[in-house]
């Protein structure tokens, strides 16, 4: 039982990281109709920016997290403005623009990997934040980094939810996600909202990167694995569905952790996809997905 609980705790924490990245991917898809294949690299850059800030400034960990989210979000906005928007515009607005956008995403992922390589090198960097002693709750020993991951992720998700449901800008964001032309007629500055949406998606990935940094090394290729798992998570939950992305992330994390603990650690990366195949067999549109394309 003790062992099981430990595995669940670890899986749940990692699942929160997957969930944040999946949330960003789903958010960008539901808002902009962009399937963003460079999102793993945004996560990686977020982690590197976090490490750099940690080394060169005396910021506390929560401030690091926020600063990295802001900087990475702005970087994402710049990338979208400079590269993606030309493509989506050429494809006749923000409809599914076909292969061009997908190839551009993959290309961007390679470019960003190499940019990070040129700046920070190939060697994995430690992210030595000290959180203090693990927390003991009865039989359970919880490393504080896991508590940080779960707590920060929950706060971010709640903040996103409140933003979308309770604010004027969030309402506008949902309108833009659903139909850009009508949003324009409501007096919404659509190009600006698109930047905001993309920036938020990137900031979520950056948060995941900064949160995972202290329990892992930060390295140039860290985005590849997480991209695939976050995609699996987003699809499991229902692509474009925000609560679905969170649910999918947690399921992937826990499944992976239990599989690695009870079956075999060397096949750790397979379990997420077994889960994916199983879910798609039973519910092809994902757990919370509906067969008609649903939007935020």
């Amino acid at each position: 039982m003790q062992y099981f609980m430990d595995l669940v705790v670890v899986g749940f924490s990692i699942g929160m990281v997957y969930a944040l990245v999946a949330l960003g991917i789903s958010f960008i898809y539901s808002g902009l109709d962009i399937v963003h294949f460079a999102h793993g690299e945004i996560y990686m850059l977020g982690a590197f920016i976090g490490v750099a800030l940690f080394k060169h400034t005396g910021l506390s960990y929560p401030m690091l997290l926020i600063a990295s989210m802001v900087l990475t979000g702005l970087l994402g906005v710049a990338i979208e403005r400079l590269f993606y928007r030309r493509l989506t515009r050429a494809g006749g607005g923000y409809t599914f623009a076909g292969m061009g956008m997908i190839i551009c995403g993959f290309g961007m992922s390679i470019v960003l990997q190499n940019v990070a390589y040129l700046i920070w090198g190939a060697k994995p960097l430690p992210f030595p934040v000290s959180f203090g002693m693990p927390l003991e709750i009865g039989e359970l020993t919880l490393p504080r980094s896991y508590i940080w991951i779960v707590g920060a992720a929950l706060i971010l998700m709640a903040a996103l939810h409140l933003f979308l449901k309770k604010t004027r800008l969030g309402l506008a964001a949902r309108a833009v996600a659903h139909n850009k032309e009508i949003a324009y007629l409501m007096g919404i500055n659509v190009p600006m909202m698109i930047s905001v949406l993309f920036g938020i998606g990137c900031a979520l990935a950056a948060a995941a990167g900064v949160l995972v940094g202290p329990i892992n090394y930060v390295q140039v290729l860290m985005g590849i694995g997480i991209l695939i798992k976050a995609f699996a998570a987003a699809v499991i939950g229902g692509f474009g569905n925000l609560p679905g992305a969170v649910l999918g992330g947690l399921l992937v994390g826990v499944t992976e952790s239990l599989g690695a603990g009870y079956l075999s650690g060397s096949y750790k990366d397979i379990y997420a996809f077994i889960l994916l195949i199983f879910v798609l067999m039973v519910r092809p549109s994902g757990i919370l997905g509906v067969s008609i394309k649903s939007k935020a």
């Binding site: 004027r168 309402l171 506008a172 949902r174 309108a175 659903h178 139909n179 949003a183 409501m186 007096g187």
Partner: peptide
């Protein structure tokens, strides 16, 4: 062209976005 996924009030509030 009303937003089906938004409530009546949310649709109206969108009209007041500016």
């Amino acid at each position: 062209e009303a937003y089906p996924g938004l409530t009546v009030e949310e649709n109206l509030r969108l009209g007041a976005h500016v």
